[in-house]
Write a protein that binds this DNA or RNA. Structure first.
Lengths: 110, 110
DNA sequence: GCAAAGGTTCAAATATTATCGAACCATGGA
DNA sequence: TCCATGGTTCGATAATATTTGAACCTTTGC
């Protein structure tokens, strides 16, 4: 047996706007999504942006994002493979993810 | 004196993505934003979508939306004038508001 | 099987948010 | 000015969310 320890993910059509917005309303979780926007990443707790954060905390953040349908979290060898659910989000809420990821945060004149 | 009882609103450049997403992550607050998308509305507590909700609760919802920079809440005679801050949101986070407001919630095949 | 590496889940303590009655504030009209 | 109308704020309580250590599960390697 190669694949086990699978986690539940909402189907595309079950992804809810409220949950997506809530998941991404936390700066830390948004940072994860942005990190994954560049491409899939391996391991959840070993991401470099927060070496001091306990793994239980990181795992919880992944859970919120996963249950909202923002990211996919699959078993990969001894660790996990994380990825953004771009296609699903785009199909369900066109333009939303890009608008959020592109939100620079810098005013025009600053 | 005609205008008093003004409430604080964040300046355009101070509107934060996290707060906007959080404010709109609640179905009730999102409903208010959608209601106002059609045009400004008078009165906050008398809106028809929730006649049973206590006015303190409605006022709190307005506060969250206002402090996030999503809506404007101005004095208008004896009541208030509520409006969506479309231009400010569009300038700061292009495409975001439309993506959220347009999010129908119906899957393609259903 | 045993031990290590990597993550998730459990459970309890904190912190944040929501709810809503009561008190308070501002406007309009008599 | 006094009263009614409309909303906001205060304060207390309930409901959620976050944080984290400890325990547990799965794969890898011996």
């Amino acid at each position: 047996m190669e694949i086990a320890f699978d986690l539940p993910h909402p189907a595309r059509e079950d992804i809810e706007l409220s949950q997506v917005l809530f998941a991404l309303s936390d700066p830390g979780r948004l940072a994860i999504a942005r990190e994954l926007a560049a491409g899939p990443a391996e391991a959840a707790s070993c991401v470099p942006w927060a070496p001091d954060m306990p793994k239980a905390t990181k795992s919880h953040m992944m859970k919120v994002l996963r249950e909202a349908g923002v990211i996919r979290n699959e078993p990969k060898g001894r660790g996990r493979l994380l990825s953004l659910r771009r296609a699903d989000l785009e199909a369900r809420f066109p333009g939303l993810l890009d608008a959020i990821l592109n939100a620079g945060g810098s005013p025009p004149g600053g």
